[in-house]
Amino acid sequence: MTETPNPNIIDADTLTGEMRPIRRVVIGLGSNLGERMSALQGAVDALADTPNVWITGVSPVYESEPVDCPEGSKKFLNAVVLADTTLSAHRLLDRALAIEDAFDRARSEVKNSPRTLDVDLIVVGDRRSATDALTLPHPRAHQRAFVLKPWSDLEPDAELPGAGPIADLLADLDVDALTPRPDLVLDLE
């Protein structure tokens, strides 16, 4: 994964004239409360409607057991979205949080509490970040089959920066805990 898929493509901000590279992004989606599929589709639609974000792929949907969640948590539906963007990582994070809020995501002090929608930035180009607000690449993506398997469906040869090829990472994870849901398809209009 490179910072700019085509180094000759640069977007000039119309207000400032600032040149911004197009970055490839991987976004993980998950939901285990309420109308799970509607929340995932809503997230795809909201991302597609985001200025300066161009969705290039949407993975199949998987159902997964909750990982590191409170006891009694329901199963998740998960998917991955691939996109190109000229937005900065922090602006994209702001958009992800706004999408979660639009689907009534309740924030809790309880780690990994159930949620109507989770929109996680997994990779934003080759950006690295280690702040309280944003860690890139996502710090646990290499341990999450529910992120790596859908991503692998879209880009089998992809690499998670700093961790290696996702195919190798998947070989060390329990993908049998994932249930493909071919009856659930996310549309990209």
Rank of each mutant, 00 (worst) to 15 (best):
T2K: 13
N6A: 08
I10S: 14
I10Q: 14
D11P: 00
A12M: 07
D13C: 11
E18V: 09
I22E: 05
I22Y: 01
R23W: 01
V25E: 08
V26M: 01
G28Q: 02
G28L: 01
L29E: 06
G30Q: 00
G34C: 08
E35Q: 13
E35T: 11
M37A: 12
S38N: 13
A39P: 07
L40V: 08
Q41R: 04
Q41Y: 00
Q41W: 01
A43G: 09
V44M: 09
L47N: 03
L47C: 11
A48Q: 10
P51D: 14
N52F: 15
V53S: 09
V53C: 07
V53R: 11
W54Y: 15
I55W: 01
V58Y: 00
S59K: 05
S59W: 00
S59M: 05
S59Q: 06
E63G: 10
P66A: 12
P66G: 08
P66D: 05
C69N: 09
E71I: 13
G72I: 07
G72Q: 06
S73F: 02
S73R: 06
L77P: 04
N78Q: 00
V81L: 00
L82W: 00
A83I: 05
A83H: 08
D84P: 00
T86W: 04
L87W: 10
A89E: 13
L93Q: 12
L93Y: 08
L93R: 09
A98R: 13
E100N: 10
A102S: 15
A102D: 12
S108Q: 04
V110Q: 09
V110Y: 03
V110S: 11
K111T: 12
N112E: 03
N112Y: 11
S113F: 01
R115H: 06
L117H: 11
D120C: 04
L121S: 08
I122E: 01
V124F: 03
R127V: 15
T131Q: 05
D132P: 13
D132L: 14
A133H: 14
A133L: 13
L136H: 14
L136I: 13
L136W: 12
P137S: 08
H138I: 10
H142Q: 15
Q143Y: 11
R144Q: 05
F146T: 02
L148P: 01
K149E: 07
P150R: 03
W151P: 10
S152D: 09
S152G: 10
D153P: 05
L154Y: 00
A158V: 07
E159S: 14
E159C: 11
P161Y: 04
P161T: 04
A171F: 02
A171D: 12
L173A: 05
D174P: 11
D176F: 07
A177C: 06
A177H: 01
P180H: 09
P180N: 10
P182L: 03
P182R: 11
L184G: 02
L184N: 03
V185S: 07
